[in-house]
């Protein structure tokens, strides 16, 4: 994980995204412990308050859990973690599709209509298989 001090993105959010992608890529596995506030602050050269804020946000999102007196762990509810990263991947595909539609000067309404068409097609395909 790298922190970009020149970015306008708050550093705590950079850490949230960094850990999210480390969990998504399998670098950090469910049930594994996360570094202490102090260790991660030293490693990333950031303020420990900022690491704490990032951990609070990750906990709120259900990606990590805290065990009192022991520390932070990657959440073991695998589905939740993978669903989070899978949803993010799907969202990314959508974003790319929208970008190419915009490049082709298709209106927002047009994009919505095309999405409905695509959804209808896949529904029919899925229906045909069962």
């Amino acid at each position: 994980m790298r922190i970009d001090p020149k970015s306008h993105v708050p550093i705590y959010l950079q850490i949230v995204e960094g850990i999210r992608s480390e969990i998504g890529s399998g670098l950090r596995r469910p049930g594994e412990s996360l570094p202490s506030l102090r260790a991660l602050a030293v490693e990333l050269l950031v303020n420990p308050n900022t690491v704490q804020r990032a951990y609070e946000e990750l906990e709120r999102q259900g990606l990590i859990i805290s065990r009192r007196g022991v520390g932070m762990f990657v959440a073991t509810t695998d589905e939740e973690v993978t669903r989070g990263s899978e949803e993010e991947a799907v969202l990314d595909t959508f974003r790319k599709g929208i970008a190419s539609a915009r490049a082709a000067r298709i209106s927002t309404r047009g994009i919505t209509q095309l999405f409905e068409v695509a959804l209808g097609q896949t529904r029919r395909r899925a229906g045909g298989r069962t």
């Binding site: 001090p5 506030l37 102090r38 602050a41 030293v42 950031v46």
Partner: peptide, 25 residues
């Protein structure tokens, strides 16, 4: 950071290195 991270200390620092300020302040 090692010295202060556990103690919840207050830090005041001046710097021309704005990347450091962004990281720490």
């Amino acid at each position: 950071l090692q010295a202060v991270a556990d103690g919840r200390r207050t830090i005041l620092f001046s710097s021309h290195n704005l990347d450091d300020v962004r990281r720490l302040a």
